[in-house]
Design a protein around this nucleic acid. Sequence first.
DNA 1: ACCTGAACACCGTTCAAGT
DNA 2: ACCTGAACACCGTTCAAGT
Lengths: 209, 209
Amino acid sequence: MGRPRKFSREQLQDAALALVDARGLAGLSMRTLAAELGTGPMTIYNHVANRADLDVLVVEAVVARADWPQPRGVDWREDVQCIATAMWRAVRAHPHAIPLILTRRSRSPAALAVAEALLDALSRSGRSGQRLLVAFRAVSALVMGFAQAELAGPLAVEAGEAAEAVIRRIRALPRQRYRRLIEIAGAAARSNPEREFRAGLDLLLDGLA
Amino acid sequence: MGRPRKFSREQLQDAALALVDARGLAGLSMRTLAAELGTGPMTIYNHVANRADLDVLVVEAVVARADWPQPRGVDWREDVQCIATAMWRAVRAHPHAIPLILTRRSRSPAALAVAEALLDALSRSGRSGQRLLVAFRAVSALVMGFAQAELAGPLAVEAGEAAEAVIRRIRALPRQRYRRLIEIAGAAARSNPEREFRAGLDLLLDGLA
DNA sequence: ACCTGAACACCGTTCAAGT
DNA sequence: ACCTGAACACCGTTCAAGT
């Protein structure tokens, strides 16, 4: 049945994620991953089908690192909060990988496990079928959307930019035209990402209750 | 003061978006855009700083096409729905461009206009400062998150895949381990994206009321 | 000021050859 | 079965030269 493969899938995952964390997305290529593993570019093709698969490898590695306590099963709201927050934290723990997580499909057991856990907690709100589906989509969207907003939203901090630079940039806009945006720029500067995320999630959970 | 530029920014935007719509993200490069405009690759550098700017061009083109009716100013909920739905539709109108919209920062007037309009409607719920910021972030996150889920979530339809293939794939999973996921797979197949999005948004708006 | 071709260092991948 | 080097068609971008 052939000799064992030179590298395990987990080894590839770890090496690919390490590269992205250290050098950014542009630092990951067939060639750099091969070099990292001390082999030639073509060897990677023994483990993935193509370049796109390399990105999926990174996504799986990040999602696999999401960890939440065993749901207590008392208050479904509390359990949804736990799982959603764990997912949000896992994504944010690897900022360079966020673009991939937002855009690459993964069907790893870890990805499915998060979905199932979330669905299970949400089902205890008394929902099933279409209504459970909508609740699941809404919570998932909120988690990914909050991670996305920090990366690319109008109030996002540019790479290497100071937080105050964002406020200055917003405040420099025409005052009449962007009144509200200028108004919240100050609040955005004083804000804490996790507190904001949890407050946003609470709004949705209020709607779900 | 120099002669007029060979191409306007809008011309570049339109050509870049047309390329992405027709050939996918991989179809857009400095060279293909130049060819589309009937010139050489280096000419593009007279209009953008680098390749990353090309992506921003596409994002701006998509957001600029978002269009919503003048807010009626009666029911803030209705106005938030209008603006959020317009944004969601604009994003979905260019499926190939979605990865860019999720990951590239744009500061075009069009992008700021959506934010300001949304903030204005949300402020009429009686919020300001930190609370307005959280409401804004939550609604924005939901919009982008719903667009994202269709692209890369566990229930997303693969390129060229039939909708039923997703259900079959989910149903083939271990029944014990993924009980809820299998349960909602059927609902997902019968669902309509816009109805789902609006139902999800309604949940959040309920929480905001 | 703006335009542009040649050249360079990268990239993913095909192919053919190794064990 | 698995591994891998050479070669090819792409890519973004630097540089130098044009108007």
